[in-house]
Design a protein around this nucleic acid. Structure first.
Lengths: 215, 215
DNA sequence: CCAATTCAGTACCGTACGGTACGGTTCGCA
DNA sequence: TGCGAACCGTACCGTACGGTACTGAATTGG
């Protein structure tokens, strides 16, 4: 995720130069370390060894910088699709557990938490532009991966549901419960991560109880 | 919830004078309307017709004001306990649906969303004091109500679970899914509220499939 | 009727931030 | 070698905020 290759790809996808990518990386680090309050234009310029003038030239204003940060980070996250072939009950369960663990890992990541906090903090005013962006470019991605997995399960006769969104909502809720909110509120994520594996398996087991086709 | 009686009770519980309660009420209104950025000391003083000096005398500093706002709001929410007697399968289900609807109503409330956004925004620095406070005085309350309900269901032989926290986590996840996050990110809550009833019933139905004792 | 307390209203101070302007430097290119 | 674009570093400006100090009015208790 943090590799130079991923960064370069993200730049290309957003029409950013490499230098600008480095600056955004540094801005994200500042945001993760100190929250929105630490994300000042002067601070970013100092940390990235660039001038404030360049920041305004590249990103317009502070909000433009925030948007660029979200877009930049989102374009670094690539979700590989699962081969829809050869699904049996056991492999479906395994895929679901992997998905659940990935979901928990993503949601508990430093940068994800920081960006969500940022967007939530700005949600009151300004029509929640950042919130929509985060929703669209972040959650939609992982939602599509889940939808594909669920659809494959149904096609293979292993899952039974009418509304895919409803089924996904149940899966998401069983996996995440209120952990995301707790982490957003500042609960130490370090100690929670140990329980992710067990939590993911329990959630998938419950999900299959609800939506798995009886055998 | 917004009645004068509730306000007075909240004041008494926190050692606040009536005047201070009015000020906090006004501060909450500012926060709901304009987010944290709109919650300036001068703004609160102007809106509440008090002096900044009084604000600092009563609450110490800005953080003290924020803490007082959370404590004030939390002490206005009273969760009535359910009579543990006369539980049959149908009444348990009904109670669970009511709980689920209440939960969704609370989480989608203006003040709740604003305070959660506030605490989340401050979670990066400062050891997330507000986050813990919100967690302790807000979620714990409703968590206890749910725990009591689940325990009553188990005592009556209607529910089967080993770990009450795990069962509550499943119930919470099924009910809330990712709606809370979406609302925190700024999704219009107005249109969602119509679906609360159906959502609550579906969630309870799923929960009973998982944890209801077979008959 | 007076003294003490409380508080509203305002003015004030230091600071920090967003945004702009400018001088100096590097680098690519003709 | 000369030229222009890009850019760093810094200085600067206006504003807004947190927090403090002061003044005058209202209230209270004796």
């Amino acid at each position: 995720m943090q590799s130079v290759a991923a960064t370069r790809e993200a730049n290309a996808g957003n029409g950013l130069t490499e230098r600008q990518g480095v600056v955004l990386e540094e801005a994200l680090r500042l945001l993760v370390d100190g929250g929105e309050k630490a994300l000042t234009t002067a601070g970013v310029a100092r940390a990235a060894n660039c001038s404030k003038e360049s920041l305004y030239k590249w990103f317009g204003d502070r909000d433009g910088l925030l948007s660029a940060m979200i877009g930049f980070q989102a374009s670094k996250v690539r979700t590989q699709d699962v081969a829809a072939s050869a699904l049996d009950a056991e492999s479906l369960s395994r895929h679901l557990v992997v998905f659940a663990k990935d979901l928990l890992e993503v949601l508990s990541g430093d940068v994800s938490l920081a960006l969500n906090r940022l967007a939530i903090g700005q949600a009151s005013r300004e029509g929640s532009k950042l919130g929509h962006m985060l929703q669209e470019r972040g959650r939609r991605q992982i939602g599509r991966r889940a939808a594909a997995l669920l659809e494959a399960g149904r096609k293979a006769g292993l899952l039974a549901f009418d509304d895919a969104d409803e089924a996904y909502g149940a899966l998401y809720g069983l996996v995440v419960s209120d952990w995301h909110l707790k982490m957003l509120l500042g609960e130490e994520a370090g100690e929670m991560k140990k329980g992710f594996g067990r939590k993911a398996e329990q959630a998938v087991s419950a999900f299959l109880t609800l939506y798995g086709k009886k055998v």
